[in-house]
Computed example of a mutant assay.
Amino acid sequence: MATSDSTPEEPATVGPAVGGAWLSRLAALTTAHAARLWVAVIVGLVLDAALTVYGIRLGLTESNPVAADLIARVGVVPALALLKGASLAVAVGGWFLLPERYRGLVPAGLAIPWIGAAAVNVLAVGVVLV
């Protein structure tokens, strides 16, 4: 039976709703700025990786135990390429699997920790160089 109401229906959910209005607002904000967030992802990736390589060459150690183990096994550059590449692959897959209105959460979920890690690396390298 058709109605005169032209608003799209919300998709049916299985189980309790997660996030509610807060998540919807966050998703709308991040999706509106998704292109900028993807740029931030690339900037964060490059800064984090470059500063990690530089810090290790200065004698610092990787604090992430999974990354540290992989670095010990295959070397810093191959390990970072593998870890960052796998993260990007999962993110791109998530981007295509998520409903369009939530897609901006994907680059935000990578940009925030990678930029945070780069900031920590700047501080660590700065302490060593001072």
Rank of each mutant, 00 (worst) to 15 (best):
R73V: 13
W22A: 15
A12E: 15
L82P: 02
P113A: 07
E100M: 04
Y54N: 05
V127D: 13
A89N: 00
T61E: 09
G59Q: 14
M1P: 00
V53T: 06
A35C: 02
D69S: 01
L45S: 11
V127H: 01
G19K: 02
I71W: 03
V92M: 09
S4F: 14
A67G: 06
V14C: 02
V74A: 12
G109W: 02
P65L: 02
I56Y: 06
A124T: 08
V120H: 09
V128Q: 12
V125D: 13
G126W: 03
A72I: 11
I71R: 01
A72L: 05
A119M: 12
R73H: 12
A32E: 13
P113E: 14
A49W: 10
E62F: 03
S87E: 00
G55A: 03
T52L: 07
L29S: 08
V122Q: 01
V130G: 09
A28V: 13
G15S: 08
L88N: 00
E9N: 02
A28Y: 08
A21Y: 01
E100V: 13
A79L: 05
L83D: 02
V77G: 03
N121C: 12
R103H: 07
V128I: 13
T52A: 08
A2W: 07
F96S: 13
R57P: 00
P11C: 00
D5C: 05
P99G: 09
L58G: 09
L45Q: 07
I115M: 12
A72N: 09
Y102S: 09
L29F: 15
V125R: 00
L123W: 11
E100W: 04
V127S: 04
G15T: 09
G20N: 10
A124M: 13
P8F: 10
G75S: 03
N64C: 04
G104C: 06
A27K: 01
L82G: 11
A27S: 15
T13V: 15
A2L: 15
A34V: 14
V77K: 10
W95Y: 14
L98I: 13
A50P: 03
A79R: 00
E100D: 14
W95D: 09
A27I: 14
L80Q: 09
Y102D: 03
W38V: 14
G55Q: 04
I42C: 10
L26G: 02
V92F: 09
A108C: 08
V128L: 07
K84L: 08
I71G: 03
L82I: 15
A12K: 00
A86H: 00
A108V: 14
A79F: 04
L47V: 11
L83Y: 08
A119P: 14
G20Y: 02
F96K: 12
A28E: 15
S6V: 14
E62L: 04
G15E: 13
V106W: 00
L58W: 04
L29R: 07
G55T: 08
F96T: 12
L47G: 10
V90P: 00
V120P: 11
S24I: 06
